[in-house]
Design a binder for these strands. Sequence first.
DNA 1: TTGCAAGATGTTATGTTATAACATAATGGA
DNA 2: TCCATTATGTTATAACATAACATCTTGCAA
Lengths: 133, 133
Amino acid sequence: MSRRGETFQAQVLAVLSSRDGPLSAYDLLGELRESNPKIAPPTIYRALAALRERGRVHRLESLNAFIACQCENHQHASILSICDDCGAVEESVAPDLLEKLATVIGKSGFAPLRHVIEVHGVCAECGAGQAPA
Amino acid sequence: MSRRGETFQAQVLAVLSSRDGPLSAYDLLGELRESNPKIAPPTIYRALAALRERGRVHRLESLNAFIACQCENHQHASILSICDDCGAVEESVAPDLLEKLATVIGKSGFAPLRHVIEVHGVCAECGAGQAPA
DNA sequence: TTGCAAGATGTTATGTTATAACATAATGGA
DNA sequence: TCCATTATGTTATAACATAACATCTTGCAA
């Protein structure tokens, strides 16, 4: 086993961390080709898969895009709020909400393993700038 | 304005309703081409968009697939439980959970408009059939 | 009744996202 | 050293989705 990939993963994470909005895999590909023109899609996807396994990156399923984990502890299900106006994404953690969710869907005997919770809407900043009507 | 499209939308909904698992847009395309070989992707996507607007169909963002709404009242945010073993999807409604969710993400002033709540796991039937270890 | 405006639908092409399949290279241990 | 194992590179293609424009329907008004 080796750690060859970690440098590249670190680059991917660095690019994602420098934004407050999500990037698609092909956005990342474009960025990273500036320093290494030869990389291909599988390289990006493999790095993203590794980073996701370690909880450092989240995939926004409803946008087909990726974002760096904003939390200290990277092992948790997260709630992602996506501003449809400015594109900013904020991460929340709410263990009690997950418990409630488990209760709701557990009624029929379902055992949850992975949560996708994404809420689209308007962030405070964009909402404040809007006329109320 | 016309209702020409409604027949086709009804066909799409009929196919989706006949399954207890999701179908991709191209699965649907394949099915529906049996009765009408000339339809193209935009036709499917337009029908799905109309059905989604009326709450008759849900998109599974984490699977890029679609499923008929299983509820009586089609105007509500739904919680989708997806069995990764057999593919079955079950729909739950929990207004109080949405309220709690609104509270959690509303702390920073975020105003929710659309919810994506998908839980992957193992359904009762598949879980029961498994060896415990 | 004809002609037209508006919107729905059909059609072609292409854009975007993701992975299969296989070749090559690096690493560490026997 | 040599091999087994796993990571990485490379090519090609699969899967998902929509842009752009042509065509057809419909209802209405002159």
